[in-house]
Design a protein around this nucleic acid. Sequence first.
DNA 1: GATACATAATTGACATGTCATCCATCTGAA
DNA 2: TTCAGATGGATGACATGTCAATTATGTATC
Lengths: 163, 163
Amino acid sequence: MTENTTRPRPRRQLPTADELRIWRDFIETAEALRSELASRLQSESSLSPGDYAVMLALSEAPGRRMRSSDLAATIGWERSRLSHHLGRMERRGLIRREECATDSRGAEVVLDPTGAEAFRGATVPHLRAVRELFVDALTSEQLLAAAEVAGAIRARLGPSSDV
Amino acid sequence: MTENTTRPRPRRQLPTADELRIWRDFIETAEALRSELASRLQSESSLSPGDYAVMLALSEAPGRRMRSSDLAATIGWERSRLSHHLGRMERRGLIRREECATDSRGAEVVLDPTGAEAFRGATVPHLRAVRELFVDALTSEQLLAAAEVAGAIRARLGPSSDV
DNA sequence: GATACATAATTGACATGTCATCCATCTGAA
DNA sequence: TTCAGATGGATGACATGTCAATTATGTATC
């Protein structure tokens, strides 16, 4: 039909106004959600989302300890970001860094009892907030749709985007 | 049916493992998407997402100028955040601040020609990236579902969350 | 074992965010 | 008019992120 060769097909390259509105709504909502959860976590437990992610990984690791690189890979952070963050957490007594027996370049990050205690206290309120603000905000169809949308975007970002 | 009064109904308060997986997938995907777009914007135009938001609002304002508070409200930032950011943008020559004629406490933010030029150059590649990474990653059903999910979450966050 | 290269982690410089506070000006009421 | 409070905006201190460079150690190869 429209396949005469008169003009190169004008592949629309830019989003329509509707698509842009959805995009902005989507990304701003995700941001608002992240921000609200961070704020609640902070006021309820004096932990940042970064602290929480680090301690969640550590609390699930055998011996509550983990090599720094493995920890970074587990939570998907650059090593330098983790290094800075661990420095701050160490100053607050949440974690300790010990030398690694098998590789003297390496460091092992250990969850301090102080940190374990803080993490334990933070967990339930945080999960309750996730439930309240995300899970309970959606119907079960919407929840599945959210998973599908995330999967599709993740696939487009390429396998490298989180590993 | 289950409405005998024997026990208070055990309202499940925490997310199930499946729900948690979806939650993490959702929030991490949104974060990865934001980060990838920021990185492309930066490398293509030397602008940050913050610069872009500020200049988008200014470029649409009459006279390409806006009171600082109005600008903050338009893009949904705290005033102090905007003030810091404007300082950095002013140093780079992207915007200027002028005294306000009608209220000598006030400042008017003006889009500098340098900034307008940078913004113009950034727009098309940025929108193309939004299309590629978000719009084109989703089927039209998924796009609508994304809008619905965002709406439901936004509603739960309360009307105050973006205004 | 010496040289070259890879890897583990830290560091410094800087951009970005938040929070509390400050300063100047405006506004409304006595 | 004056004074109390509200408002506009800037600032300082600090947490968080990214990037590039640095340090020290491991590994492979001749």
